[in-house]
Each structure stands twice: as structure tokens, then as C-alpha cells.
Amino acid sequence: MSTPSSPAGASPAVSIIVVSADSGASLRECARRALASNVPLQFILLDNDSHDGIPQAIERDHAGDARLRVVYNGANLGFGPAINRGAALASGETLLVLNPDCLLESDSLQRLLDRLEQTPGAGIVGAVVCDEHGTPDPASFRRDPLVGRALRTLFGGHGEGVNISGAIPDAMVQAEAVSGALMLMPRNLFQRIGGFDEAYFLHCEDLDICRRVRDAGGEVWLAGDVRVLHGKGTSSRHRPVFVSWHKHRGMWRWFRKFDPAAHNPLLAGLVWLGIWAHFAAKIPGQWWRLAKRRAARMEAVA
């Protein structure tokens, strides 16, 4: 089977970087769709110690395809650290950070590359990630999670929150942050700002890199007319408390790095208490839902 390729000696237009951690069958479809693109590309899969056999299945599916490279980390390094290792192996002029549960349409990759090229100053271009019903994830188009905004989002109230209300524009629109499920950016910019902050393990590193791109003089844009299915993979469902702990830890790190309110010791202490109280309050429900899923699986096997 022939595959699209770059001219001899030329770099691919884009290096797609995916991190897996027991991500489930959607990862296989993610790779299949990406590698079906006519865009000259490189597909780098960084596996964070999965035990589901899917990365190995992808290697078998695409045996002989020089565009695919699978790296087995042997441990769960976290999302950002794994992406950075993938970026160090990349040869494309552009990097596409892609979640293993994101399924590209046939023209999505080319359209995103066109948007990046046609938008002077763009440092990151995101897409609208949607569930299976076509409902956009609010994280596709959002603001920095400053403490005042976060409180208005959590409890309601007047004024702007983290998520931008209303329908997402069906065009290119500038944003403060886009979803880390799909982020396209020039490789030289990624290298210049030092890639992802590896002190985050999982969650909020996308908010961090969007902020650092803007601080470096780049712009963050959302391609509102590019919609991508984001299926929400299995890794988070299998380890909800683990994932939630790292999410709240990421919130605290972002707050300390970027929110002016962090300079007020009293307010910072209250934010710390609020973050971890919120984490603790979510644990019983997470355990209950996990127990129900396990019971349902056992019934299905019986």
C-alpha cells in the first residue's frame, strides 16, 4: 500500500504527537485517520506504559509505514513530559499535539495548516472539539482561569467566567486559550518557549503553554469552522481520582505562576484550601461511578 510522503530529503509538513496511557480502541482509529491524510506527515506515538496492547496493534496495522514511530516510555511520564520527548524527535515544521481520542476528518489537518499559514502572528491554532452528538467542549474557547473568573464559572454570577458564553463563532477567532486535545503550532516556537512545563503531570499544561505563547508575543487562535470529534478516552474513567488529583494540582500551579492574586498570601491560602476542598468533595462520587462501571462489566462477563 502506498502512503503519502515528502520529497526525498524534505521535512514533513507536520509532526503529529500523541500520548497514550491505556487509551483504548479510539487510539487505533485516531492513528488510522491521521495516517490516511494526504498531508506529508510524521506520526509519533509516545506510550506511557499502557497495558491494553493498542500501541502494539497500531505498529502491526501500519507495519512498513515510515511515517509512524512508536516510543515506549516504560513508565507514565505525564502528558507534557511525553509530548516534549516526542517534539525532540519531530522533523516537521509544525507540531500537532493530538489527544488519542480525537478523530480527524479527511480534510481537517490541511485546513488547520492553512489557517496557521494564513494568520500572521498565530502561535497556536486550535479546533472546536466536540462530543459524539456534535456538542462543542467549552474548553475549546476559553479565557485564562484567573481566580475571579474561576469563581464566577463555579458559582455563577455576573461578569466574565473562564468559558466564553454563546455559540462558538464559525470562523477564525482569537482566544486566550484553546483545548489541549488539539493544538497546532510552529515547531520553532515550541522549542523557543521550552515546550510544555514538565512540572504539570496532567491537566492545565495546555492553559500554561497558551499563556506562555502569548507572553512570548504569539497569538492563540481558534479555527471555529474546524470541528473534531473528541471521544473522551478510557484512561480518565479507569483512574478518576488519580486524574482529578493531578487536575487540581495543575490548577494550583497555574494560579501560582500567572494569577496576580497569588501575590496576596491570605488570598493564595484561601485558593489553596478551595482547590483541595473541591478535590475532596468530588472523590465519593468518583468512587461510586467507578464501582458501578466495574459492577456492570462483571455482570456483562457473567
Rank of each mutant, 00 (worst) to 15 (best):
L222V: 11
R142D: 13
T234C: 07
L267Q: 07
I283C: 05
V213C: 07
L151N: 08
V271N: 01
L104S: 14
K282C: 13
D208Q: 14
V301L: 04
H238V: 12
R297K: 11
G53W: 05
A280V: 15
R187S: 05
M183F: 01
E205P: 06
P120V: 02
E219Q: 10
Q191A: 14
N73R: 04
G161P: 04
G156D: 03
G156S: 07
A13V: 00
P169M: 11
R28V: 02
C30E: 08
Q118F: 06
S23C: 03
R253S: 05
A10T: 05
G159R: 03
D65R: 13
A127E: 12
Q42F: 01
T3Y: 06
P4F: 00
Q191G: 05
K282P: 00
G148Q: 10
R142M: 14
D259H: 07
A88Y: 09
I193P: 00
Q191D: 15
G78D: 14
K247D: 02
E160C: 10
D114H: 15
H248D: 06
A127R: 11
I283F: 04
R142G: 13
R32N: 13
G231D: 15
L109M: 15
A268H: 02
V301M: 04
V220N: 04
V14S: 00
K257F: 06
G80E: 09
L46N: 01
G92A: 07
A57F: 00
A25W: 11
S108M: 09
K282E: 09
R293V: 14
P186D: 01
A57Q: 02
S140I: 12
G148N: 07
D101Y: 09
C102Y: 02
D206A: 05
